[in-house]
Lab assay of single mutants.
Amino acid sequence: MDSLVVLVLCLSCLLLLSLWRQSSGRGKLPPGPTPLPVIGNILQIGIKDISKSLTNLSKVYGPVFTLYFGLKPIVVLHGYEAVKEALIDLGEEFSGRGIFPLAERANRGFGIVFSNGKKWKEIRRFSLMTLRNFGMGKRSIEDRVQEEARCLVEELRKTKASPCDPTFILGCAPCNVICSIIFHKRFDYKDQQFLNLMEKLNENIKILSSPWIQICNNFSPIIDYFPGTHNKLLKNVAFMKSYILEKVKEHQESMDMNNPQDFIDCFLMKMEKEKHNQPSEFTIESLENTAVDLFGAGTETTSTTLRYALLLLLKHPEVTAKVQEEIERVIGRNRSPCMQDRSHMPYTDAVVHEVQRYIDLLPTSLPHAVTCDIKFRNYLIPKGTTILISLTSVLHDNKEFPNPEMFDPHHFLDEGGNFKKSKYFMPFSAGKRICVGEALAGMELFLFLTSILQNFNLKSLVDPKNLDTTPVVNGFASVPPFYQLCFIPV
């Protein structure tokens, strides 16, 4: 009986604490739906499609509103004006990374994606500088992407125009580009180590996009005490870190300090320079996690976009025909596509942009946080508050993009057929937390897609009208449904 009384008292205290925290903070924060004790607004949000729920709530509470995930307040920004004001106009104040408990377990605050403060700034600055020195957006990395595009075309030829699921092959190409940047090595598509790495990356994007992960991140005790797919994700990350550590040891034994070959060499050189400046942010643990982040951000996002792009091109054969006509006119058949071609191919450029806009790969991006107490639109948001960005509300804005739910390359073309930029184009987020590999991803999408369409016609196994382009999961990332196609050599 005594234990029951204690339990009831504990629960009562928890409920009172929950109510007090919510009521004391709500006077400062933007308005929002009334949260339930302990669980907050979790029942009012469709976990399978958070973005749709945010759109519905914005119609009631406006472009800036507050939700509670458990006891934790989260300020939501919906629509271009609110997102721009926060991420661009007040970029420094909104540059923090929001709480992501599962990532905390995986990387302990290291790396480039989930770190904060001085650690994040130094690692991000170093990573950007190193990638630029190796030619991100310049010639040397373009050579690597072109080489991988040629290998991709050869792998597709091996399908002999038979029906195939493109998931694996389209994942190999961007993964190999990242391998060449980090390890100075590309792998054969049949290499077992490479296959294991690909498998872990593919599993992780599916797990991260599941409703279960949303629950884990908002009720963090689940991570330590409950079984579930989150444990598989943590094991996959541990596998990748151990693999990278092996490569780091190989580099330490063979590195030429006067001739760095890749990202690992550059990081080890930085560690050597910083060894007298303790404590340094440049450690082996930081290198492991930064490399894992580059793999995660640079492989599955690009391969998922490529997979979605081919599905949309199957669905819209008239678009595919126009792209192939432009390829034939500008590039021809006797040389590989290059980035200089893009400025002469406005329709193809528009298609690449429209694919990214339409699929809305990361509907709410990753959570941000404010780095200080900030007054925002007459609300006071306390330091450390998590900020949720609705990228969907920007990419699918119906004023900027008429009929935003329709796939239409003319969203990025003017009346004369010239490519038209849009400030609403934010597939990689915006501001200080914009994806480090934005330029690389854009290069890969253009070169891989043009190389495929230069060499193959795409054949659907069903009537294009019957192809479903609805994402199968739409949590962290929008993942396309399973499909097969035939690559018919031109």
Rank of each mutant, 00 (worst) to 15 (best):
V5D: 14
V6A: 15
S12Q: 04
C13A: 09
L14W: 12
L15V: 14
L17V: 13
L19P: 00
Q22S: 11
S24Y: 09
S24L: 12
L36E: 02
I39R: 01
I39V: 12
G40R: 01
N41V: 00
I42G: 05
Q44P: 05
K48L: 10
K52Q: 11
K52A: 11
V64I: 11
P73V: 04
Y80G: 04
L90Q: 14
E93M: 07
F94Q: 04
R97P: 06
R97F: 05
G98M: 11
I99S: 10
F100V: 11
G111S: 08
I112Q: 09
K118E: 13
K119Y: 15
R124S: 06
S127F: 13
S127C: 13
S127D: 04
S127R: 04
R132G: 10
F134H: 15
F134G: 15
R139E: 07
I141A: 06
E142M: 05
R144D: 06
E148W: 00
L152T: 01
S162N: 11
F168V: 11
C175W: 05
K185I: 05
F187T: 03
Y189V: 05
F194H: 04
L195S: 09
L197H: 01
N202Y: 12
I205S: 14
K206Q: 13
L208E: 14
I213T: 13
N217E: 13
N217M: 12
N217R: 11
I222S: 06
I222E: 02
S242P: 02
Q252M: 08
M255I: 08
N258T: 14
F263G: 04
F263M: 10
D265W: 02
F267R: 03
M271V: 10
K275P: 09
K275I: 11
N277A: 14
F282R: 03
I284A: 06
S286Y: 07
N289W: 11
N289K: 06
T290P: 02
V292Y: 12
L294P: 01
G296N: 15
G296P: 03
T304G: 08
L306K: 00
L310H: 03
L311P: 01
L313I: 02
L314W: 01
K315F: 00
V330Y: 07
V330L: 04
R335W: 02
M339G: 06
M339Y: 13
M339K: 04
S343V: 13
H344T: 09
Y347Q: 03
R357Y: 01
L366F: 09
T371I: 10
R377D: 04
Y379W: 08
Y379S: 05
L380V: 12
K383F: 02
T385G: 02
T386W: 06
T386M: 10
I387C: 11
T392S: 14
T392G: 14
V394S: 12
H396K: 11
P409H: 00
F412G: 00
G417S: 09
N418L: 11
Y424K: 14
S429T: 05
G431C: 04
V436E: 03
L440K: 01
G442F: 06
T450F: 00
I452R: 01
F456G: 00
L458H: 00
N466E: 15
L467G: 01
D468M: 06
T469S: 05
T470Y: 06
T470L: 15
G475R: 09
A477T: 09
P481T: 03
C486V: 07
P489T: 02
